[in-house]
Design a protein around this nucleic acid. Structure first.
Lengths: 209, 209
DNA sequence: AGTATTTTTTGAACGATGTTCATTTTAAGG
DNA sequence: CCTTAAAATGAACATCGTTCAAAAAATACT
């Protein structure tokens, strides 16, 4: 009868994550309030701080969920048999679709600024590897000259470039691609990258020496 | 003797912007407090709300300054005579250097999330055009087939991709390029983009139809 | 079953923060 | 010098995240 307590404890935690997730999805991370969460989860204000360390950690738990969903979407997008370029294009398309379809939750993943002293927990940081996991295989086919470390770094760079275009487009009409052109611009970006990434005989890759 | 008042008024406003700029530079946007600003500017708390509408607008004024400095740095980075690729590389290098050398102020430019109803003023939004201004000329030499609108859009995409890599690298060890490799990765990215961007006879650009 | 002990839940209270506003102080005009 | 308008002030307010002593609930023990 001891697990009765821990069951209730985990149930409350789940309800809090559910509530926070729903509220972020609806109103964005910026307007997330502790009182709204506990109200929706059906518990007292203080209960939040029994279940989790603080609001930031609760957001981390929500982001962890979103990251898992995003990872699944990327994994599912990989075609069974196709050229590296086609795989890259499919991954980029899936990323754009997920971001557009989950703006607030997706944005929350990258909006977490831990206060001064503290830091995002290691277990969560390592979850971000899922974002580049699927890129490595097609990239290694395009660049058989790179070793594992170089491939990981280059994959991070490729992801970040696509991510930057999506982010600029979605939030901020600043210098962002108009949303109706986003898909096409990302496609053009990935195509240019794919073409330019192929090792040429005349120009060797300078950064991968 | 009427301009005596408006002179004092503008002097206070300048002191407030100076103070906010310094504080953002030192501690980042997240830890910017109204009381710290007025204390440093040498005025009462309420004076801030006489000089500017609210804290957000003060941050906009700081960001406007930073954007101007960044624009100047980009402008100065353009070589007098060189290939389009070299110009692109020079611009990307300048962007990386500015971001690394002004992390908090640079980050503040892109961290402004206006609360629910309100929006970033138009005059400030248009200032962001300075980020892609210098890219258009070299890009037009690489892609003479694109018209003005297409060039602007494509330049935005190119900027956003480099920006994404820099952002991921600087803040968040998530999936970011290690800082010591940042310059090299951006160089590789721009090189790949430059090579891939050149119109080929076999594959026409699909998004610029 | 009844009692003691431990754990959980609660919500009032606290400190920090952005913003407002009645009051005071300063400057301009006649 | 006096009147009047503008600006500066900082106490007060509302809204946050977070804490904590007290109450309630669950578990363990005899």
């Amino acid at each position: 009868m001891e697990d009765r307590r821990s069951a209730k404890r985990e149930d409350l935690k789940r309800r809090l994550i559910d509530a926070a997730e729903k509220l972020i999805e609806q109103n964005g991370l910026r307007d997330l309030k502790a009182r709204d969460i506990t109200s929706r989860a059906g518990c007292a204000l203080g209960a939040l701080y029994n279940a989790v360390q603080d609001l930031d950690q609760l957001v981390v738990l929500v982001n962890s969920r979103t990251l898992a969903r995003l990872g699944q979407a990327l994994h599912d997008a990989v075609p069974t048999r196709s050229t590296p370029e086609e795989t890259m294009q499919a991954l980029a398309r899936a990323y754009v679709n997920f971001a557009v379809g989950n703006v607030n939750l997706w944005s929350s993943i990258f909006s977490l600024r831990p206060p001064k002293g503290r830091d995002v927990p290691d277990w969560h940081q390592s979850e971000f590897a899922i974002l580049i996991q699927e890129i490595i295989k097609p990239l290694s086919e395009m660049r058989p000259d790179l070793n594992a470390d170089q491939l990981r770094i280059r994959a991070q760079t490729l992801f970040a470039s696509v991510h930057g275009v999506v982010q600029m487009s979605i939030y901020g009409k600043y210098v962002g691609t108009p949303s109706e052109l986003l898909e096409g611009e990302v496609e053009a970006l990935v195509e240019a990258l794919s073409r330019g990434l192929q090792p040429a005989k005349t120009a060797q890759d300078q950064s991968a020496r």
